[in-house]
């Protein structure tokens, strides 16, 4: 029988048998694997929470509560980084709704983006985002998809210097504009870079991830499952016999383990609408990680399917 994500989370007690599972106390994250943010040494759990599509639920009260439950499970499991963007529709107010319900957990690491061509509008957009989240200030502000980065980055560095931000970064996705990303990484004092990296999309291994290590830039990985497509692609196939050696008990964990085991990666940000999937994702940040030899084996297996 093929191992599906659903079967595994239920087998782990994360599904229908949830009431039988002891709740993880808020603040408990000591057992989650962390990586230091290179510029500060601040430890960051290697699994975060993305919000593209999944948190864009408009004003639907049922779906907003589902997202709030996802956020609650994320913090209960020891997560820290939540990432969003003004481009993500109603994701920002949905995050604010969830955070308000939880009383704004101290462990929150808020990662946002500025996404507007007109550099003069950047400050207003940032303030609107802050109001949606309901936070005093953002931990990390990134230039989304490099939009007007030449103008936005200096403004963000000024804000950081004034104590209005803690970190500054840039983002891209799906392999776009990597040469430009490299130039920014090489020439600008950014703290974070966000890129797409997964077991089938590994172009960043050649230049961007090594450059991030050289320059001391933290790496956030988006689209770890290609928006769920990788799980759908693999879930009918069996996990390899040796999957347990990677610490993975499902395809989602197998795919995430591969990403977070790269030494340059600081945090992967899978998005989901389900609290049980959040717990499963966070569980990836516990136990062993594959070494380089095992990572090559994982790639070979995935590419052969």
């Amino acid at each position: 029988m093929a191992i599906t994500r659903r079967a595994v989370v239920q087998g782990l007690g994360f599904g229908l048998s949830l009431p039988l599972v002891p709740r993880v106390a808020a603040g408990q994250s000591a057992d989650l694997l962390t990586r230091p943010i290179p510029k500060s040494g601040e430890p960051m759990p290697v699994v975060g929470l993305g919000t593209w599509i999944t948190f864009n639920v408009g004003d639907d009260p049922v779906l907003k509560d589902e997202c709030a439950a996802v956020i609650a499970a994320f913090f209960e499991g020891g997560g820290r980084m939540i990432d969003s963007s003004p481009m993500y529709g109603s994701s920002q107010p949905t995050i604010g709704y969830g955070l308000r319900k939880l009383g704004y957990p101290e462990r929150l690491f808020s990662a946002e983006k500025v996404w507007i061509s007109d550099p003069d509008e950047g400050a207003a957009q940032l303030e609107a985002s802050r109001a949606y989240w309901g936070v005093a200030k953002f931990d990390l502000m990134q230039v989304h998809n490099l939009v007007s980065w030449e103008d936005h980055l200096p403004a963000l560095f000024d804000r950081k210097a004034a104590g209005q931000l803690r970190y500054v970064g840039i983002t891209t996705s799906e392999g776009r504009r990597h040469r430009e990303i490299e130039r920014v990484m090489a020439n600008e004092p950014i703290d974070f870079v966000q890129i797409t990296y997964n077991i089938l999309d590994r172009e960043v291994e050649d230049r961007i991830l090594p450059l991030a290590r050289d320059k001391g830039i933290a790496v956030i990985v988006n689209r770890p499952f290609r928006q769920g497509a990788l799980i759908r692609r693999f879930e009918d196939a069996p996990l390899p016999d040796w999957a347990a050696e990677t610490g993975a008990r499902s395809w989602a964990q197998f795919l995430l383990k591969f990403i977070i085991s790269h030494p340059a990666v600081t945090c992967a940000i899978p998005a989901t609408t389900r609290a049980d999937h959040v717990r499963e994702n966070l569980d990836t940040a516990r136990g062993v990680l594959p070494d380089e030899k095992m990572r090559r084996r994982m790639v070979d297996y995935a590419e052969a399917l």
Partner: peptide
């Protein structure tokens, strides 16, 4: 220059469930 790299699904920013519930 980026245009050619986008697929139809890349422009979709909500799920079917969210849209039809709306």
């Amino acid at each position: 220059s980026d245009w050619a790299t986008y697929r139809l699904a890349d422009f979709l920013m909500f799920s079917p469930r969210v849209y039809f519930r709306l």
